[in-house]
């Protein structure tokens, strides 16, 4: 895979930087209105209307670090080849040209496994295909956790 991407989006969320392959991002959206998704885990902020297609919004910080999901910020809509998904981040910092590092074990964190050099920093590169696969697996594993964590389940009326 090395060398497949040469342009990357550097994004920030909750003070953390992350790199994403630019050719796998279809659109950046600053304003959006979400609607709840039934049976979805809490890291989904909701769904948006993206050109007529219901598209779930995943809060990256909530998914990666278990933070509370937020519905403000910026959305990155993935290219449809990768998935029908929008990622909520705080902001897009810049676009850079760079060569990613060789693939490495990931130190137990399988969500990212390569880095991008940026301002003498090594920024983690998010593998979006793997991310979408993980999200699919999460639904397949079911039953999913309640939409609102900590919610009490209801007896039949």
């Amino acid at each position: 895979m090395s060398g497949r991407h040469d342009r990357f989006l550097i994004v920030t969320f909750r003070g953390e930087r992350l790199a994403l392959p630019l050719d796998e991002i279809a659109e950046v959206r600053e304003t959006f209105r979400t609607f709840p998704i039934p049976k979805a885990p809490a890291h989904y902020v909701g769904a948006i209307n993206s050109h007529g297609a219901p598209t779930p919004v995943l809060d990256l910080a909530a998914f990666l670090h278990g933070d509370s999901p937020r519905s403000d910020g910026t959305l990155l809509l993935l290219d449809h080849r990768i998935g029908t998904l929008a990622l909520r981040i705080d902001r897009v910092e810049r676009i850079i040209h760079a060569a990613p590092s060789a693939e490495k074990a990931g130190n137990g964190n399988e969500k990212t496994e390569r880095t991008i050099p940026f301002n003498e920093e090594a920024i983690r590169l998010l593998d979006l295909e793997r991310l979408v696969t993980r999200l699919e697996d999460e639904f397949l594993r079911g039953p999913t956790e309640p939409f609102r964590s900590g919610g009490q389940t209801q007896e039949d009326p």
């Binding site: 039934p38 049976k39 909701g46 219901p54 779930p56 449809h80 998935g83 029908t84 979408v132 639904f139």
Partner: peptide, 22 residues
């Protein structure tokens, strides 16, 4: 529904209503 929501059990699709609601 596309990936990953297509794996969600109990939901067969989505639609946009006239007021833009999903």
């Amino acid at each position: 529904l596309g990936k990953p929501l297509n794996r969600m059990r109990g939901v067969s699709g989505g639609a946009i209503l006239g007021d833009g609601q999903v």
